[in-house]
């Protein structure tokens, strides 16, 4: 399920620095996605575009049903990644939206380290995060950078 992503072993060794990075958690399966998931995200974010909850509106726009706000599935990857590496450690989060997510979809969120290095006196790690639909199609890809705190500091682990 993660065969489309770069494994840590293939990252450029010249760019790596030696420090321990927490292992990626097991893939996180979310779903089946419901219209309630979409509506809850919309209510919480303030984007009330009816194309994400109104059947008639979505059909009128040429879609078979409402579909998820792209930022919902992108933020699921945020949840996965911050559980892994700590919410206060995220420095960059770059999102590419690919396939739409539909009611009934089962999503699998996973991530892998692509690079670890020292920058600005901080230990950093780049990760590639992928949200796959049950079809195998990619819904979202995220490239994120996290700081990896020194052991024993406050920010070492936020989510026991």
């Amino acid at each position: 399920m993660s065969d489309q992503t770069v494994s840590p072993e293939t990252a450029d060794p010249a760019a790596s620095a030696e420090f321990a990075v927490p292992s990626a958690p097991a893939a996180w399966v979310v779903g089946p996605a419901t219209r309630t998931d979409f509506v809850r995200y919309q209510g919480a974010s303030g984007d009330m575009n009816p194309i994400h909850h109104d059947e008639e509106f979505a059909k009128g726009a040429g879609f078979p049903t409402p579909f998820a706000v792209g930022m919902w599935q992108a933020s699921l990857l945020g949840t996965y990644a911050t559980d892994w590496l700590g919410a206060e450690n995220v420095r960059n989060f770059r999102i590419r939206f690919l396939e739409q997510v539909w009611p009934g979809d089962t999503l699998t969120c996973s991530g892998e380290v692509t690079k670890q290095y020292l920058q600005d006196g901080e230990r950093r790690v780049d990760v590639e995060l992928t949200c796959l639909r049950q079809t195998g199609g990619k819904a979202v890809t995220v490239w994120a950078t996290f700081v990896v705190p020194e052991p024993g500091t406050d920010q070492e682990n936020s989510h026991g």
């Binding site: 979310v30 998931d37 809850r40 995200y41 209510g43 919480a44 974010s45 919902w72 933020s75 699921l76 945020g78 949840t79 911050t82 559980d83 919410a87 206060e88 406050d154 920010q155 682990n157 936020s158 989510h159």
Partner: peptide, 23 residues
């Protein structure tokens, strides 16, 4: 509410004690 909508129940966002324990 937003965290719950993206299924993020990280206690850091919900529990001030946990937040303080993390600096």
């Amino acid at each position: 509410r937003w965290a719950a909508s993206v299924k993020d129940r990280n206690p850091l966002y919900f529990d001030a004690e946990v937040a303080r324990a993390n600096g």
